[in-house]
Amino acid sequence: MTPEEQNFMRKIEAEEKIEPKDWMPEQYRKNLIRQISQHAHSEVIGMQPEGNYITRAPSLRRKAVLISKVQDEAGHGLYLYSAAETLGISRSEMIEQLQSGKAKYSSIFNYPVLTWADVAAIGWLVDGAAIVNQVSLQRTSYGPYSRGMIRICKEESFHQRQGYEAMLSLAKGSPEQKAMAQDALNRFYWPALMMFGPHDSESAHSQKSMEWKIKRETNDDLRQKFVDQTVKQIEVLGLDHPDKAIKWNEERGHYDSSDLNWDEFWSVINGNGHCNRQRVEHHIAAHDEGEWVRDAITAYNEKKRAKKAQQAA
């Protein structure tokens, strides 16, 4: 090991954070850029399914809440893009990677959102799973990412609670509403578990990222946490658990559960989910249609600069 590497590893082992101007291994930088930008893309793409429901949310209150949530997601995307930018990649490079398919985003957003109950289930389960992951990442070894996660976790807790509250209203409503809630749970439970990624043994980037403390807990451990906390939540809703094999294991102190459909997981990751093409196409269209806004900003700034220069002269 070079002295630089030794110094880097000493900080990692002592639980000290790595800051942007510190020396870091090229692969550490790469892994971080991949993970943080993927995380940022997920926040941004995640606005699409929920944004679609703002006009259709069942009351003014639900609309206002949904608007606030979507606003938060945009903000979270911004925090994360900015954190990634401290590693030397530009915003436009990241957007380009998202649009060309080189960079991924959370596969959960490639599932169609069919009913209002799906929106409730997303807040509860998808944001719930994201929080489990993000709470763990508050302790990531890269300073700007860690600080971003702390901020995001603080803001995120309302997301899950509003989703669960909306779910509770449906589950305690008419038989039709309850059936809708059950259907949403049945469809979103499994993809939510897949959000934690492949089994540790199959995860290409996990080992190095764990060693460098970019990730603090393994995919399977985080998924187990989520499985455990969700059992009670389903019970309080009075809905049936989608996993018929769910069973408390006294010895492990955890719930045992069914294995996931990994063929589906890889298929969606590799671009064959219901909405992959639609999500990216929409992002490209929105980006292109926003061109005139960026042009206008540039033109306005130039005008302002010229005016200032004239006044100074």
């Binding site: 809440v65 606030s68 309302f158 669960y164 009670k232 309080v236």
Partner: peptide, 19 residues
């Protein structure tokens, strides 16, 4: 006038209130 941006705005049953 946007209290719904806060987690405490949502009243949930006790057994699941720690989310």
């Amino acid at each position: 006038d946007k209290p719904y941006r806060h987690a405490t705005y949502y009243v949930l049953p006790d057994p699941v209130n720690n989310m």
